[in-house]
């Protein structure tokens, strides 16, 4: 059993979860994820590792509350225990001195891009970070990210912070900010990563995306997390989760993520407090 050290909502609907998992803390690398179960009868969900403390033995991840399992996670308190915290899983993020790298984070991706930005910064890259959200009150960890980048750019849908608009304005923003990245890394929801890949294709900038399919075992056995990259089948848990955004079959990926929509809603079709969030 793994003890929860902290579980708190840092911005509306996004939670920070710090768990005591010494073995994971010593082995974690940027880009890794852990498979978590909120309780004995719960579902296995993958959460990207956002930070870790090898001496303290704790691992931090950021999650968005979107369904029954994350709802259970969102109810955890310090001192609670969870039965599963398997990891670190997935291929490490590719870290080298590429020159100039733009790290884009949206939603929970703002948290998960932090270790990648940090490692790239330590490897000598000029790192720019772009965080995007619907509105200013949904942005977080700006101070942490400023420490590991040359400049931080904010984009909000309603213009309450930074640029008004969506990631589709990226080419324009690159021009305005006078940034010429050799590589772009995007972490966030599927729509964000898809859109980002679409607009960078014409610019010819290599765009790495951190895919988020449904996962069960996380070690390459079950096949639930498969996606098509450059026409070939890959498993996000062992071949990824980072892939080239220009090679991913986005349409198929979005469809596969919706496979269990009816089943996901079914446990919530109850009128009692016990089953609800």
């Amino acid at each position: 059993m793994y003890r929860v050290v902290v579980r708190r909502m840092i911005v509306p609907n996004i939670h920070e979860l710090i768990v005591e998992a010494p073995l994971v803390a010593t082995a974690a690398q940027p880009g890794n994820f852990v498979i978590v179960r909120p309780d004995e009868t719960g579902e296995r969900v993958p959460l990207t590792v956002a930070d870790w403390d090898p001496e303290g033995g704790t691992v931090t991840s950021i999650f968005l509350q979107v369904g029954a399992s994350t709802a259970k996670l969102a109810r955890l308190k310090a001192g609670d225990e969870i039965p599963t915290y398997a990891g670190p899983l997935g291929k490490d993020a590719e870290i080298a001195n590429f020159g100039t790298v733009l790290c884009v984070g949206g939603c929970y991706g703002i948290g998960s891009i932090y270790p990648v930005a940090r490692a790239l910064h330590e490897a000598g890259n000029t790192v720019y970070v772009l965080v995007e959200a619907r509105s200013r009150y949904l942005l977080y960890w700006q101070e942490k990210l400023r420490q590991v980048c040359a400049r931080m750019i904010e984009v909000t849908r309603d213009g309450s912070a930074g640029y008004k608009g969506h990631i589709t304005r990226l080419p324009e923003i690159l021009t305005l900010e006078k940034i010429k990245p050799d590589r772009i890394v995007v972490n966030g929801c599927t729509f964000l990563m898809m859109k980002a890949s679409n607009v960078t294709r014409a610019l010819g900038i290599r765009t790495i995306v951190n895919m988020n399919p449904i996962m069960i075992d996380g070690t390459g056995m079950c096949g639930v997390c498969r996606l098509t990259v450059a026409g070939k089948m890959k498993f996000a848990c062992v071949d990824g989760p980072d892939f080239d955004g220009h090679e991913v079959d986005w349409e198929e990926f979005l469809k596969r993520r919706k496979t269990y929509n009816p089943e996901e809603v079914q446990p919530l079709r109850r009128s009692g407090c016990a089953s609800h969030f």
């Binding site: 509306p12 929509n261 809603v265």
Partner: peptide, 10 residues
């Protein structure tokens, strides 16, 4: 195709 079943709506 589905609404995100969130805790608070943003």
């Amino acid at each position: 195709y589905t609404i995100r079943k969130s805790g608070v709506s943003t």
